[in-house]
Computed example of a mutant assay.
Amino acid sequence: MPPDPPAHRTGLSRRGLLKGGGAVAFAGVSLAALKLPFFATDGASQDPATCRATDLSASQKELIVSNWPAYIDPRKNPDSTFQQFQQQTGITVHYTDDVNDNSEFYAKVRNQLGSCQPVDRDMMVLTDWMAARMIGLGWIQPFDKKNVPNLQANLIDPLRNKQWDKDLDFHAPWQSGLTGIAYNASKTDAVGSFEELLTRSDLSGRVTLLSEMRDTMGFMLKVTGADPREFTDDEWGVAIDKLKESVQSGQIRAFTGNEYTQDLAAGNILACEAWSGDVIQLQFDNPDIKFVTPEEGLSLWSDNMLIPNLATHQANAEKWINYYYEPEVAAKLAAWVNYICPVKGAQQEMEKIDPSLVDNPLIFPDDETLSVTFDFMPLDDQQQIEYEGDWADVTGG
């Protein structure tokens, strides 16, 4: 008899915990007024080789981790991955869920990291674009690769060869996800493309898009014939104008974090841009909620483990990374958080943990699904400022 499946996580997903916590409606406050950090900090770059601390891991069995809320199996459970790591290694982990938004977290640590001062953390978990930014600024320590053999051996192929860290020197995906389309099959016909979200008259006023710029604009670039992985300012301009047209026509109801899930389940919206982990949670209670691979493809993203400059327990952090890249551990974590597992072999281990999840394509997508995924081009300082300004004008004005 297979073991009892674990209780599934409820409540807000990691991707929904955005700054402000509410929908960005068109009559609301402009995002420009939030004064988001745009990384234009003179003298902020560092050399990680010269901005490092003595590693105290051998004498101090401790580790300080900053992660997103609701992004690990219950830590108080003696059989949890967290407790098992502590028992196996003798390392006491001080774990905080204080990463609620990439830009907000950046603002919290930028002055210290930009001036080679400690942030009192051994590990931070940040999304691709922010990980790329911090690595580019020299704020992240390279791994001692002999300490993370499981990362090198077991990371799934679609998450390798990132433009900003091709050789996995600085980052290790914690969990990954897909951005695509969801619709309520009890309320509307199937929706097969992002173009349909923007133009179908029967969906008018009952569509939401995501308030994270790279998620939505990656699809807008696709719709207008550009490549999100490499595009020009002119191509950006065409894509943002297309979005503006859809907003002004009344097609788009709002830009949201994951509160779209409530409206989608209730039928207040018919279709939306959606994160895969949210849809899994909805489907437990409502099988009419469907996740679709749009004709334009799927955005594939990761939240990544990073070791900041002046971390004092780097070897302990590397033990944590190596542990979570064991397939059995990775499967146990994925069974709880319900996002894409980045570890080869975890799908086979899931048979022992929760057989109902083994063939879930939103946790273990097949090669065909992964073949149509894309990510978003890293932006320099000037692009970041200009594009965020354009985005705020459309979504907040």
Score class of each variant (00 low, 15 high):
residue 34 L to H: 02
residue 34 L to G: 02
residue 34 L to W: 07
residue 35 K to E: 13
residue 35 K to R: 14
residue 35 K to M: 09
residue 35 K to C: 07
residue 36 L to E: 13
residue 36 L to Q: 11
residue 36 L to A: 13
residue 36 L to T: 08
residue 37 P to E: 09
residue 37 P to C: 08
residue 37 P to Y: 05
residue 37 P to Q: 06
residue 37 P to I: 08
residue 38 F to P: 00
residue 38 F to Y: 11
residue 38 F to H: 12
residue 38 F to G: 01
residue 39 F to C: 00
residue 39 F to D: 03
residue 39 F to V: 08
residue 40 A to G: 07
residue 42 D to C: 00
residue 42 D to E: 13
residue 42 D to S: 10
residue 43 G to I: 01
residue 43 G to R: 02
residue 44 A to P: 02
residue 45 S to I: 04
residue 45 S to W: 01
residue 46 Q to C: 13
residue 46 Q to A: 10
residue 47 D to R: 06
residue 48 P to D: 10
residue 48 P to V: 13
residue 49 A to P: 00
residue 50 T to S: 14
residue 50 T to Y: 06
residue 50 T to A: 11
residue 51 C to F: 02
residue 51 C to D: 02
residue 52 R to F: 02
residue 52 R to W: 00
residue 52 R to E: 08
residue 53 A to E: 09
residue 53 A to Q: 06
residue 54 T to L: 11
residue 54 T to F: 05
residue 55 D to L: 12
residue 56 L to T: 04
residue 56 L to H: 10
residue 57 S to M: 08
residue 57 S to C: 07
residue 57 S to P: 09
residue 57 S to V: 07
residue 58 A to F: 04
residue 58 A to E: 15
residue 59 S to R: 12
residue 60 Q to G: 04
residue 61 K to P: 04
residue 61 K to A: 15
residue 61 K to Q: 15
residue 62 E to W: 02
residue 62 E to Y: 07
residue 62 E to Q: 15
residue 63 L to A: 14
residue 63 L to G: 11
residue 63 L to I: 12
residue 66 S to V: 04
residue 66 S to Y: 12
residue 67 N to S: 08
residue 67 N to K: 01
residue 67 N to Y: 01
residue 68 W to K: 05
residue 68 W to R: 13
residue 68 W to P: 00
residue 69 P to M: 04
residue 69 P to N: 03
residue 70 A to D: 14
residue 71 Y to E: 06
residue 72 I to E: 12
residue 72 I to V: 12
residue 72 I to H: 08
residue 73 D to A: 14
residue 73 D to Q: 11
residue 73 D to E: 15
residue 73 D to C: 09
residue 74 P to I: 10
residue 74 P to V: 09
residue 75 R to C: 01
residue 75 R to F: 01
residue 76 K to Q: 15
residue 76 K to R: 14
residue 76 K to L: 15
residue 76 K to I: 06
residue 77 N to V: 08
residue 77 N to G: 00
residue 77 N to A: 13
residue 78 P to I: 03
residue 78 P to C: 01
residue 78 P to V: 03
residue 79 D to T: 10
residue 79 D to L: 10
residue 79 D to M: 06
residue 80 S to V: 01
residue 81 T to D: 08
residue 81 T to Y: 00
residue 83 Q to W: 01
residue 83 Q to R: 15
residue 83 Q to D: 03
residue 83 Q to I: 00
residue 84 Q to S: 10
